[in-house]
Nucleic acid binder design. Structure first.
Lengths: 294, 294
DNA sequence: CATATGTTTCTTATGTATAAAAAACGGGGG
DNA sequence: CCCCCGTTTTTTATACATAAGAAACATATG
């Protein structure tokens, strides 16, 4: 009943590993592959068996030789490598952001399960996890209510975000010169400049960089609650902007410049400068989000 | 397979309703009872049927008469009125706080289900919801890890709590005289004074008052993320102090006095005073918690 | 026609089943 | 001993089943 997405993902990854090796070369041990693929040895063996069956490798006593290079078409399609629970996430986000749901809509576990073609258990589990994003609410014995991707959601989100991020940014002022963070900040700046140079072609890569940047800043002084809140922010930006592409390029370019200004402020160690740059960026991000909701 | 805890809770509540009425009196309509009991009419009818079967009421055409007063022993025991999911919460907390679990302990869904005598589905659902408290973490395809009720947990918790509560407390300074909040603050003060007067007998009532007080303060400017964080705090204090009763009376008395000081500060509308009173209380609460963890 | 009760249908809460994945066990060779 | 592989056991992810509860529909009664 469980899907074999772990196997398929590992299989695809194994193809990539084999491609880095020569024909006739010997594969690493099962344990080594286990670490490289990040799965259990059971799954490694299943992948190896699959490779053998396809004639890609030959299993001899205590070793496995590459017989022919796997072709790209042997890969499993992306969708089959996603656990059902992950697919449900995507389905739900589409349902939500496509506008099938307005504030106050009642969410019906059974109906969603039917619509998404999965078991109710999964939908239920998803909703329970999704609750932390503040967009749905449970009513005892009577399903869920969708509270809406509204302006007040955005405002509440940004109120917290501002508290958390200002707190972290300020801590930079007191950071010793020797801290490894400064190096990470440097390479973060480089990544921003690179993206900026090629902004016309790569503006869609910003979303991921944005998330990494803000996580780096909040990581100066780890706090599990702040980190968990970053998930909320990442989710909002990831999904919301998938459905609101208006001005995407321009929007991202502005944000990159604001990030660069913040980086400079952080490096100055001047609290006033840091505060200003941080608040400027957050205000602008908030306005952009509000604008795209309305 | 579902338990009938809703019915049993409603049944007990109905006993209380009947006790406020006279023998021979007519019961309210099913719909009226539905609202009073907070359940569906289906459940109301089941309760009425139960009452009839026990001879407590007589169902005539379109009305129900009280035939005899129900006795207390007819109530269902408290435990049977708790949904399985609620029982699991208690079981898990005991397991955790009794010390069966040290930081890094792996949590096994199957084993917990066996230990608690419930279905794995329930344990899984509970863990998913419990994740937000920051005490456990999920590993892909491999269960959960208990991160421990440690000092760093307490410190991270209080860092956020301080941000949130100072934010709310400060907002009081700008509140207009006419705001209904001031009345609530007044009655909150009264409740504190009452408890203080009878502290030797009632010190265990503090936990609930504490939660209400802090929720009232954060409610001046509602923010779903702050409210959700209050759940974390409530959980920590509710369960942790159930297992750490040392100095409970003294500890609660101190906290009450700090609350009273904060109330006074809030009413002064003086930001500096508010800040000081709030920080004082939070610092002392943090120290108490840290002390009891060590 | 409005409100109350009787009846039917749909949904949620909880238990059970099972394939996939992980972990544990065990023997053999360097 | 330590790593490697074959085998067995345990656990997780997912599906499905069903009684309890909610909601919708229907009928009756004032």
């Amino acid at each position: 009943m469980r899907t074999d997405t772990t196997f398929k993902r590992a299989f695809n990854d194994m193809i990539d590993i084999i491609r880095t090796l020569d024909l006739g070369a010997e594969l690493p041990s099962e344990n080594a592959l286990r670490t490289q693929l990040g799965v259990s040895r059971t799954t490694v063996r299943k992948v190896l068996a699959g490779m053998s069956a396809r004639g890609i490798i030959i299993s001899e006593a205590h070793k496995r030789i590459i017989r022919e290079q796997p072709r790209q078409k042997e890969r499993y399609p992306k969708k089959e490598t996603l656990a059902i629970s992950e697919q449900v996430e995507t389905s739900f986000m589409e349902w939500m952001l496509r506008g099938d749901a307005c504030p106050g809509t009642e969410i019906n576990e059974t109906e969603l399960a039917r619509k998404f073609g999965v078991a109710t258990t999964i939908v239920r589990e998803f909703l329970n996890r999704f609750q932390k994003y503040g967009l749905i609410e449970k009513r005892q014995n009577a399903g869920w209510v969708f509270k809406g991707f509204t302006a007040s959601f955005a405002l509440e989100l940004f109120e917290i975000r501002e508290m958390f991020e200002m707190r972290s940014a300020r801590l930079f002022a007191a950071l010793p010169d020797g801290s490894p963070v400064w190096k990470q900040i440097q390479s973060m700046r480089a990544a921003h400049l690179e993206l900026l140079a090629d902004i016309d072609a790569r503006f869609q890569d910003f979303s991921e960089l944005d998330s990494r940047f803000h996580r780096l800043i909040t990581a100066v002084a780890p706090n599990r609650f702040i980190e968990s809140f970053q998930d909320v922010i990442t989710m909002v930006f990831h999904y919301h902007y998938q459905w609101n592409k208006r001005d995407e390029r321009a929007r991202n370019e502005v944000a990159i410049r604001e990030h660069l200004a913040l980086i400079e402020a952080l490096e100055s160690r001047n609290i006033a400068l840091i505060d200003r740059a941080c608040r400027l960026h957050l205000t602008s991000a908030r306005e952009t989000l509000l604008h795209s909701i309305a």
